[in-house]
Design a protein around this nucleic acid. Structure first.
Lengths: 198, 198
DNA sequence: ATTCATTATTGACCGCGGTCAATTTTGTGT
DNA sequence: ACACAAAATTGACCGCGGTCAATAATGAAT
């Protein structure tokens, strides 16, 4: 039998990712073209698709890696003790997700996986997001009547709601921050909301 | 000056929409092709793009109309007095949105408008969604410490969260319903959640 | 009826993602 | 060294959304 995976393969894949990264640095995710990637990498078009199922799979990997780096930062800091601190902690990630329509689009498409075996990088980061945030809600100064993971999922939902509305010209006068804060206040401090003194 | 809009125009547009509707009935939104639409309508490809900015604009219109019909139903019924009743009321709309990945995708893309003048049908329905649901939260048996519109936006966010997770193979064992209920319970009945007897 | 500016339609063409049969490269057994 | 099968690469090709200069149809003014 022959070697299952050749060194050549890894080298080519690295070249493709390198080329793609350079393109994003030069312009943006939106303007990334497969034909430009293979041109810079010096390989044929077909080679690209031998390495990535489709263009989105490459973006999935690149964007997933960036999100993971943000989660490293989020997880490394001390657990927030207020909604404001939560928003400060989440800001860099939200800024990235909201930086380009294309990025937001890919994340929305890839937040779900088609089959269990094919859980992509982005989908994985969203599981991780819930794990990281759940820690904040165990014994934190936030509501204790709910499953921490459910609270984390709620924060995720509100984050996307705020970002989606921000991409919408009708109501993008308010910043993502101003939009997210009341959601989180009501979600995480229902008692305080019921009674401002409490 | 000449007539601003010719009868011919309306007729052609109607033929295009008719053809597209027939295709969706025959197959699905996913399999709708512009070339098939113009073939059935008996016009050239360029004509399509003289009537619709792009393919998404047609889908925006078709899907927006369907969502509007669901909102008619939702608005016509009596205001729900429990989370379960809310879910019953929202079920037909959620079933439609979750019926096809393509439908969900178009809605996510078009829930926001690029410019204020270009608020599309789907974006309009989401403003209407908030209006309709806000009515339920004024003087209803739900939390009274929050702006009704904010509560409605929260329901919207959770609806999308539940739908998005449902498209995800990792965790689609739970139904959309089972996923949505705890969110809404915690969102709309924080006091009850704090004290099960209350 | 004829002119003429405006509007609608046409279809060849392009961009770009994605496919696949043919070809080349690679590592292993002899 | 050589043969050979598996793996990697190639590039012509396709599908389909979208463009645009050229052409045709329309209706108002005369």
């Amino acid at each position: 039998m022959t070697t299952a995976i050749q060194p050549r393969t890894l080298k080519t894949r690295a070249r493709l990712i390198e080329a793609a990264t350079a393109i994003v640095e030069d312009s943006s995710f939106t303007e990334l073209r497969v034909e430009e990637v293979v041109r810079r990498a010096g390989v044929a078009k077909g080679t690209f698709f031998a390495h990535f199922k489709d263009k989105d799979a490459l973006l999935d990997r690149m964007i997933g890696e960036i999100i993971d780096q943000h989660l490293d930062q989020i997880g490394a800091g001390a657990a927030p003790t207020s909604v404001d601190q939560i928003m400060v902690a989440l800001t860099p990630l939200m800024t990235f997700i909201g930086s380009e329509r294309e990025v937001f689009g890919v994340i929305l498409r890839y937040s779900g996986a088609t089959t269990v075996e094919e859980i992509g990088p982005i989908a994985a980061t969203f599981e991780r997001f819930v794990l990281v945030l759940s820690d904040w809600f165990i014994d934190g100064p936030f509501r204790q009547d709910a499953d921490p993971a459910t609270l984390a999922e709620g924060v995720q939902a509100f984050m996307f709601q705020a970002l989606a509305l921000n991409f919408c010209a009708i109501n993008n006068q308010r910043s993502v921050h101003d939009r997210l804060r009341p959601y989180l206040e009501l979600w995480l401090h229902p008692a305080k909301a019921l009674d401002p003194q409490g």
